[in-house]
C-alpha cells in the first residue's frame, strides 16, 4: 500500500474572482522509502501539491490518503495533529525559530510530543550528528550558514519520526557545495534508515540524484520516471 495516494486532486485559487487552476487532477502514489523529485516549470503546481500532501492546504476536489487515512476532510486542529505526527517539513527558507539554538529547534517537536528528556537528548544528538553539525548544537540560526541551517532543518524534520519528509525546493537558497552536501545527507538517510523524501526542485543536479522524477505541467502529471 502506498503511504501517499492522491486521487484526482484539483486546486483552484481565487475561485470567486480570477480563478487559477493550480492543480488539474493529480493522481500520484508514493511508496515508503522513495526518494522522489517533483519537477516542472515555474507555476506548474509543485508547491501547491506539496502543501496539499503535507496537510498545509486543502484541495478543491479529490482525495489524499496518507497511510490509508483521507486527510482532505480534516479540520484545522486534526491537520495540526496529523502534521505533527506524520510529516517532516524542510522549507526553502529554512524557517528555523530564530530565538532557539540548533539543538532546541530540533528538540521542539519532541517537546510538543511530550517525549521524555532522556529520549529527546539522545535523539537530538543522534540527528545533529547524522546531519554533520553536532558541534554547532548551541548556535542560533543567525550564527549558522545557509547550508548549516538547512541541515538543522532536516534534523528538525526527522525529529518527530515522521512517515515522510516533504521539502519544497530545499536547495534553492544554497550554493552548489552545500547543495551536494545536503543531498548526500538526504540520500544516506533514505538508504540507511529508509526515510521517504519527496522534494520539489528546479536544479538539474538535484534531479539527477532522485530515484523517481515526477514532472508536473499545468497542474497535471506529465511524466513519471523511475531510475
Amino acid at each position: 500500500m502506498p503511504i501517499i495516494k492522491t486521487t484526482q486532486v484539483t486546486k483552484v485559487y481565487n475561485p470567486d474572482t480570477i480563478p487559477v487552476h493550480a492543480l488539474a487532477g493529480v493522481d500520484l502514489e508514493i511508496e515508503a522509502g522513495e526518494f522522489t523529485a517533483i519537477v516542472g516549470p515555474s507555476g506548474s503546481g509543485k508547491t501547491t501539491l506539496l502543501n496539499i500532501i503535507g496537510g498545509l492546504d486543502q484541495p478543491t476536489s479529490g482525495s489524499i490518503e496518507v497511510g490509508g487515512q483521507d486527510i482532505s476532510k480534516f479540520s484545522d486542529s486534526e491537520m495540526i495533529d496529523f502534521r505533527q505526527k506524520n510529516i517532516g517539513f524542510v522549507f526553502q527558507a529554512y524557517n528555523l525559530i530564530p530565538v532557539l539554538t540548533a539543538e532546541e529547534n530540533v528538540e521542539f517537536v519532541m517537546l510538543l510530543q511530550k517525549r521524555s528528556k532522556a529520549e529527546r537528548q539522545a535523539r537530538v544528538k543522534e540527528l545533529l550528528e547524522s546531519v554533520g553539525i553536532a558541534d554547532k548544537w548551541d548556535k542560533r540560526p543567525n550564527q549558522l550558514s545557509g547550508g548549516q541551517q538547512q541541515r538543522v532543518a532536516v534534523a528538525r524534520a526527522l525529529a518527530s519520526k515522521p512517515t515522510f519528509v516533504l521539502a519544497d525546493e530545499p536547495t534553492a537558497n544554497l550554493d552548489s557545495k552545500s547543495t551536494a552536501n545536503l543531498l548526500d545527507i538526504m540520500a544516506r538517510l533514505n538508504q540507511e534508515e529508509g526515510i521517504t523524501f519527496v522534494f520539489s526542485t528546479h536544479d538539474q543536479r538535484v534531479i539527477d540524484r532522485a530515484r523517481r522524477v515526477v514532472t508536473l505541467v499545468d497542474g497535471q502529471v506529465d511524466t513519471d520516471v523511475y531510475k
Binding site: I80, R83, Q84, K85, I97, S160
Partner: peptide
C-alpha cells in the same frame, strides 16, 4: 507571523 506559521506547520497546536 512566519515563525508562528512554521510552529503551526510543524505541529504546534492552536491552544499552545
Amino acid at each position: 507571523y512566519k515563525e508562528l506559521g512554521v510552529l503551526m506547520a510543524i505541529g504546534m497546536g492552536k491552544g499552545k
